[in-house]
Amino acid sequence: MTSLLQTQALELAYGQVPACRDISINVNDGEIVTLIGANGAGKTTILRAIAGALPPRSGTIRFAGKDITALPSHERTNLGIALVPEGRRVFPFLTVRENLELGGFKFRKEHARVRDRMQAMFGMFPRLRDRAAQNAGTLSGGEQQMLALARAMMSEPRLLCLDEPSLGLAPLVVRDIFQTITAINARGTAVLLVEQNARYALQVARRGYVLQTGSIATSGPCSELRSDLRVQEAYLGRGAASAGAAAP
């Protein structure tokens, strides 16, 4: 497996306020990698840097062997990075169909390709076909998440970055979304998944990074992370029991 995305010693800040330091992560072609961590640990910040919405203070980002650290976000999309942002960020006053078309903006000169791609998305999310002419702002939260996911997939990305896809959704909908993510990955798209719902994330992903207050605390295969006591205590809610058992 070759490395698709590689960040090296990224240091990120909002203005003068430091957010993350020494972030080195790696995503190989075709795998699912998760970033977990508490609120404010810096997960969203890292995704924004990868997507090009936040220029890093130092460090490098390489994608498919190319240094993209200085590229603006619209050019990264053209290289094959797609981000489903936190809170979905569908265009509320554009219809579902228009949202999808814009997801395929880089293919705007190939109308047939955009059309085919949209049909494929409607096949994957039949609900979106029913709502194609509706403004995206009128969709339910789950439908908006599906739209944001489909919109990102319109650009045929090599790397799909997802920021909290389960946020605020009903458990049944969350299960659907995660199944879809797995299906997308099975067709060859690498996935970088940021999640607060660590239980789901560690089941779906192959490898993971655990973030703590702006830096990577630990990383490894998800099977190992699941049995890591610190991870269990902090994110999987088995803290009380294991802490009690470990006490002398």
């Binding site: 619209h74 053209n78 942002p85």
Partner: peptide, 13 residues
């Protein structure tokens, strides 16, 4: 509607 997200679509704002 959302300049940053438009950038994510590959649109040069």
């Amino acid at each position: 509607q959302d300049r940053e997200t438009a950038g994510l679509m590959g649109i040069n704002p």
